[in-house]
Design a protein around this nucleic acid. Sequence first.
DNA 1: CATTAGATACCAACCGGTTGGTATGTTAGT
DNA 2: ACTAACATACCAACCGGTTGGTATCTAATG
Lengths: 201, 201
Amino acid sequence: MPRPASARDTLLNAAVDLIRQNGFTATSVDDLCRHAGVTKGAFFHHFPTKEALGIAAADHWTDTTGAFFADAPYHAPADPLDRVRAYLKMRRDMMDGPLPAFTCYLGTTVQECFGSAPALRDACQSSIASHAETLESDIDAAIRMYPPVRPVDAAGLALHFQAVIQGAFVLAKAWDDPATARASMDHLIAYVDLLFPAAGS
Amino acid sequence: MPRPASARDTLLNAAVDLIRQNGFTATSVDDLCRHAGVTKGAFFHHFPTKEALGIAAADHWTDTTGAFFADAPYHAPADPLDRVRAYLKMRRDMMDGPLPAFTCYLGTTVQECFGSAPALRDACQSSIASHAETLESDIDAAIRMYPPVRPVDAAGLALHFQAVIQGAFVLAKAWDDPATARASMDHLIAYVDLLFPAAGS
DNA sequence: CATTAGATACCAACCGGTTGGTATGTTAGT
DNA sequence: ACTAACATACCAACCGGTTGGTATCTAATG
């Protein structure tokens, strides 16, 4: 029985939606309350400040996207390098439809808050890092199974994936078109193919 | 003789500085005026709206960074692929010191405004695109001189460079440390080396 | 079992300060 | 005399946050 969504959860979902579209600063507490159908009193009952809501939304994002990726089918292949490639192809294929639907709450937020809200920046960093870490074991296994043409470190490559994905989002927003982003993901996939030549491309 | 910096230019420089640090929305017109040492009257004499200032700042950014890259030493090598590599190494080496000093006005702004200020988004897109275009001729010459192991298109690769650079900025801000960004640039350089094996790496 | 105390969840109204923007000067150059 | 380039003073709307209050639940008490 999905208990009647609490004001807290409703606000967190509204935060992810609205902040991805308009940014953290441009999204007012009133906007969030209106979108969530609750009052300001409820907002400040659950969150001491707007920044705290931002941090909670980053954790919420970690949970929801974490569950989504944990259940995703790219884990199926027996070959670790195939799993890595399946991950990247999935990330590319996800870049479709209206931009606000697939872009990242974290990248949007961290660009705004990094100079003014260190706690929020830290929450975004942790969330990105935790997602990158879920890739490390597959990348590491791929490195051991198919020696790369140049020495690479699994953690560093996982972060590079995130950098390209975040950069692809920036370009997709600038062009107002996900095609540019997908093209960049294709270059990233090509990079992986070139790094691990032992496996059939 | 550098004419006594007009209020307009002073405001544009202040905009680039402040907006890179705090974002477009979080930077108020009063902040800009204070930082530029002019009054609000002067602001709205030169710019009809705050958004117009943002657009003018994007053009200003195009001009100043355009001149900077045009004069940069990476154009020196006779070999076009060496010029491309020198460009990437320069972009990597620029990622040093305090973050606000080397991050990009455009990437920061476009993430915030893409849903609410199409004209500003468009100005950012044009600026990124125009910078990418300056790389196309070198990349194109490199492709013809050193056939890449897989077919690549110069314009697409130039945009991929920008995606990685923008993504590196996002990670640098999240980690509050440019090291992550430089590591990502090293992966991009490795990608170029692998794409053009005919030339000595 | 009924009563009550305390916590939790939420709401409507409000607060001082700040926001982008305007209306009306003033000053210097031509 | 006319205009471009500023400055001063001001405004309505909105900002994040606070207030005092109510409805609803749980847990202990008699």
